[in-house]
Structure formats: structure tokens, C-alpha cells
């Protein structure tokens, strides 16, 4: 048994690193595909009810587009810092990796704070999930997006801490590359949501 495991150990070392990374990235792409369908259905519901129902309160009467635009910019800039983190990894710049990952976490957290602020104000105005269809669809869609941002933050924080301890030497890492993919996906979803809910009212 001990001899066998030493043989296995050698073979493990022989697995090309690139293959392992690509495998994890592929898994994340599949996961993102399934998430796309999930958000697609929620977005479809929002649009369907938006078109069939014009009761107030709705997006026009209760949302602060300007403020959300600022937080949107924050979230989008977190995609940029995330990309910079990726680049640091490729260049094997461990310090840069930690810094940019942390920046991404901070920006994502600011976005969530903005969302919480918005929610608090809506709830204060009696716009709730149970108020009407706008409330139901709005909170469901943005709530699930917020949940995904939160999950992304947990993952990013984890890898940021790990990076600080020198886990990722680069130039490639399945964990960091797939979390980046996920984070960009969450941002893209937000662009769609922001466009549909806030801009095209």
C-alpha cells in the first residue's frame, strides 16, 4: 500500500498544471451557464410583469437611479481590480495579487452597502416583497444578485487571505481564475439588471 501511494504521488506530480487549471475553469464556465439560465428566468419574470402591469409603486416612482448608478460604477470598477489581480497572478506578483483582491472585496462590499441602503429606503416607503408585483420581482431579482455578490465576496476574501499566506505563486491558479470568471459574470448580470430596471423604466 505504501509503495503504491508513492507511485500515485509521482503521477500526481506529473499532471501538467495547466490541465488542472483548465479543468476548474471549465467547471466554473458550466456553473455560470446554469446561473445564466436561472437569472434569465428571473429577469424574464421581471420583464413580463413590468409589461403587463403598471401599478404604482414601481421602478419609476420609487428608485433612485442616480445613486444606484454610482454604486453600479463601484461594482464595475471591482471587475477592473479583479482583472488587475489576475494580471498580478500571471506576473507572479504576490503582493499585487493580495492588494487587488482586497480592493475587489472592498468595492464589492461597498456595492452591497449601497444595496442595503436602497432596500432600507424602499422598505421605509412600504415597498415590500408583498406590496405588489414590482416589489416581488424587484426584491427577488436584486436580492438573488446581492446573494451572488455576497458569495463572491466570501470566495474572494478566502483567496485573498490564502494569497497573503503565499498559496498562489502563479502564473496560473484554478481557484483565482474561476472566481474571477464568476465575479465578472455577477457584474455582467448587474449590468443587465441595471439596464432593465433602472434605465428602461
Amino acid at each position: 500500500m505504501s509503495m503504491q501511494s508513492s507511485v500515485l504521488g509521482e503521477q500526481y506530480a506529473a499532471v501538467p498544471e495547466k490541465e488542472g487549471v483548465d479543468r476548474v475553469r471549465l467547471g466554473m464556465i458550466c456553473f455560470i451557464a446554469s446561473e445564466t439560465i436561472f437569472f434569465g428566468m428571473l429577469i424574464t419574470s421581471y420583464v413580463y410583469f413590468r409589461l403587463s402591469n403598471d401599478a404604482t409603486p414601481n421602478a419609476r416612482t420609487s428608485l433612485d437611479v442616480g445613486r444606484t448608478a454610482i454604486f453600479t460604477a463601484v461594482l464595475l470598477s471591482s471587475s477592473l481590480t479583479n482583472w488587475l489581480a489576475d494580471r498580478s497572478l500571471q506576473r507572479q506578483n504576490q503582493r499585487g495579487l493580495v492588494v487587488w483582491l482586497s480592493a475587489t472585496v472592498v468595492l464589492g462590499a461597498i456595492f452591497l452597502v449601497g444595496q442595503a441602503w436602497e432596500y432600507a429606503q424602499l422598505l421605509g416607503d412600504q415597498v415590500t416583497v408583498s406590496r405588489n408585483l414590482f416589489g416581488s420581482t424587484f426584491f427577488t431579482l436584486t436580492g438573488f444578485h446581492g446573494l451572488h455578490v455576497f458569495v463572491g465576496l466570501v470566495a474572494l476574501t478566502t483567496v485573498a487571505v490564502m494569497a497573503g499566506r503565499g498559496w498562489f505563486r502563479g502564473p496560473r491558479s484554478g481557484a483565482i481564475e474561476s472566481i474571477s470568471l464568476y465575479w465578472h459574470f455577477v457584474d455582467v448580470v448587474w449590468i443587465v439588471i441595471f439596464t432593465l430596471i433602472y434605465i428602461v423604466q
Binding site: Y48, F49, V129, S130, N132, L133, G135, S136, T137, T140
Partner: peptide
């Protein structure tokens, strides 16, 4: 949470 997605009586479908 008493939302209205599928309750026709309150506008759902």
C-alpha cells in the same frame, strides 16, 4: 413572503 408571482388574484400569472 406573500409575493405575487403566481397569484392571479393580485396580478400574478
Amino acid at each position: 413572503l406573500n409575493a405575487h408571482f403566481f397569484t392571479p388574484q393580485s396580478g400574478g400569472s
